[in-house]
Design a protein around this nucleic acid. Structure first.
Lengths: 187, 187
DNA sequence: TGTAGCATGTAAGCCGTTACATGATTGA
DNA sequence: TCAATCATGTAACGGCTTACATGCTACA
């Protein structure tokens, strides 16, 4: 036991659990990637397909997911369901003290802003404008996700996470506007 | 040319430039780490000492920093200054289109919140309270950094980045409180 | 005398990405 | 018939962390 998995592995297990409530016979790697792109992407990672498959292999090796090979038509695929052991592993991770620490932010815009004096105010403002545009796009994507969840009680936690993200994007927009003004005024 | 460095390498070059304005003969790896912990840590990474040294070696190999061996007393150390080539590499990175993309957030609290239904409202609230405490601490650390910068015009960009971070922590605190209320009400 | 801070590194390994490769199915 | 999408993988590599190892200096 005590198979220590990465957080991302746990996250994928989590997606498999959330899926389990509704659907058919588990998810394919491809479908799992889609789920990740709609959820994890905004606050964790958007794992590459290759990583999805290798994580699934690892989870299957440890018996935390069950893989069933299916061949519909001539197209082969593997569907993955979380196993009882997998569910136990996930529960135990969730119950464990939050030792995975404070959120980590990798913010290239902030980094470049720090060096603003090297490029001058116009370049900084242009960069910030670019970021504001990206924020609009990102917010739009997340808004779609939020809308999909509607007010279904079963997905209330996912909805909260989505709203958290939306607030975050709004807060970013505000502060960036303020910084832009300040750069405009004081160089 | 076109020695393609990681963003972190550029960030370290940036710290060496910012340092250059004031001090003596460059920075030791140890001092650079301290600068990183006061700045980069909050919006990029807090590179391990081992990484600092290996990045400095790489930069030195490419001629982007000059290393001078000094021996004060019996204690040997190497001081690093950015070279003209290094300054050019940094400028060119700053001038290049921002292809390093949207900020990446790794937020274990949001991840666990998404799975809130698996642990129940009390556990979720406890977790969020823990996060709120961490935020207070983090904010305090950053506040100190902000205070150090005072209103010195030379460091106005660093000050803006610090204020950005403070706003971010404030926004997080607000939204987490709201989510807590909602969890309390609707489970 | 011993601990904390200064100072420098090596080695191993994980996580994740990019590039590459293959093939089936659906619909324009 | 051609492109987009579904579906699955392998190989190589980069970035970063942890663990380990060494030694000096200031100060309590």
């Amino acid at each position: 036991m005590s198979t220590d998995l990465s957080i991302t592995s746990h996250a994928l297990l989590g997606l498999l659990v959330l899926d389990g409530q509704s659907e058919q016979d588990g998810l394919t790697g491809y479908e799992l990637k889609q789920r990740a792109d709609r959820t994890l992407r905004f606050y964790w990672v958007a794992p590459a397909m290759s990583q999805i498959y290798s994580e699934l292999d690892r989870l299957a090796d440890r018996g935390l997911v069950d893989a069933l090979d299916t061949t519909e038509g001539r197209r082969r695929s593997r569907r993955f369901r979380i196993s009882d052991a997998g569910r136990a592993a996930l529960d135990s991770w969730l119950a464990s003290p939050m030792d995975d620490g404070f959120p980590a932010l990798k913010h290239p815009v902030a980094l470049r802003l720090m060096l603003g004096a090297l490029v001058g105010p116009e370049a900084v403002i242009t960069m910030l404008d670019g970021y504001l545009e990206d924020l609009v796009e990102r917010r739009h994507d997340l808004e779609q996700v939020r809308a999909m969840l509607a007010d279904r009680h079963e997905v209330r936690y996912a909805a909260r996470v989505a709203e958290w993200g939306l607030s975050y994007y709004d807060a970013e927009t505000d502060i960036v506007e303020k910084i832009k003004d300040d750069v405009r005024r004081r160089g």
